[in-house]
Simulated scan of single mutants.
Amino acid sequence: MEKRRIRKKSSKKKWWVLTPIIILAVILLSIIGYGFHLYNEVKNNVNDKMHEQVSGDVIDVERTKERIGNQENINVLLLGIDSETSITGRSDALIVMTLKPDEETIQLVSIPRDTRTTIVGRGTEDKINHAHAFGGPEMAIATVENFLDIDIDYFARVNMDGMAELVDLVGPITVNNHLEFSQGGNSFPTGNITLTGDETMNYVRMRKEDPRGDFGRTDRQRKVIEGIVREGAKISNVTRITAMLDVLGNNVSTNMTFSDMTSLFSDYRQTAKNFENYQMEGSGTMINSIYYYIVPEEEVVKVRDMIES
């Protein structure tokens, strides 16, 4: 689930997902109640700039509404795109984020990008991160649902542009670093460290020096997500919230409407109290001279049970 290195300014920008920040921005506004003007500004930003509708054949809206009404687990597919526009490109990061109200927990399950599986809509075996490049979020959602045999309720897609700016808006963030290394002119000692936007980019980009390769990098990505969520929850300045939403509007798309967000997270906001992280496990192999990551069926069953429990 983690692999190699990234150059400083590559057109293939490998990164992670920021949906929890959208969620927190909406929660903050509903809690703090900043007034009609800001409310409408946020609403228009989400509905006009971030919202991307998907087919009802892929996501059953009525089923999701029923789950929310019953306070059941909700699954959000987070897609990090290695493209500057986030409209095309492979999903270099795939994370199923499950909101578990009974446990007051957000569970993040990372799927290795090279996982070999059936690409729904094409009927071929390929790397799971190619699904988005072939058919956008709808094909990515359908492929992940088929792979894990779960239902996805929402998706959020993010590209790397603007993420350093976002970290600077909510941060600096703090992460607990387990590997001492240097990248891009920054040194990262072990223990709790604080990161600016530029430092965060170097922190998550490093793969070559990590003995766990992509798996170590994905672990750092998840730590950054948690750090951003925690710092974002502290924001109480109207200007900073507005600026944060502008950055998100330019870099994030989701099938959630503003109404979806407010109704969902008025009931699910307590899930941000705790985080559980898991990385799907398997083994690498070469098939027709192409590297794939093979996840055994027992691992798939284990993850499905984790998500649905």
Results as ranks from 00 to 15, higher is better:
E66N: 12
V26G: 01
E104M: 10
S182N: 06
V17E: 05
P296M: 07
M139K: 03
V42P: 03
K49N: 09
N40K: 08
I228A: 03
I32G: 06
I6W: 01
T271M: 10
D102K: 15
I141Q: 02
V109M: 06
N44W: 00
Q53F: 02
P137T: 07
G35A: 07
K49S: 08
E209R: 07
R116L: 09
I74T: 06
I22G: 09
T117M: 04
D102L: 08
I119T: 03
M139H: 05
N129A: 14
I22A: 09
K127F: 01
T190L: 01
E180N: 13
G123L: 12
T257V: 07
N251W: 02
G227P: 04
F155T: 15
E2F: 12
V120T: 08
I81L: 15
K9N: 13
G89D: 04
E299I: 00
T285C: 07
M280T: 14
R122G: 03
D48V: 07
K65W: 06
M163R: 02
F147N: 00
P211W: 01
V224M: 05
V300R: 15
S91T: 05
A131T: 07
F181R: 07
R113G: 05
D126K: 10
E125V: 02
D246G: 08
I27Y: 02
N250A: 14
K13G: 05
Y34H: 10
I173H: 01
Y39V: 02
L248G: 04
S11R: 12
Y39H: 13
T143R: 01
N47L: 04
S309T: 12
R217P: 02
A156Q: 10
A133F: 02
S86A: 15
N159Q: 12
K12H: 10
E298H: 14
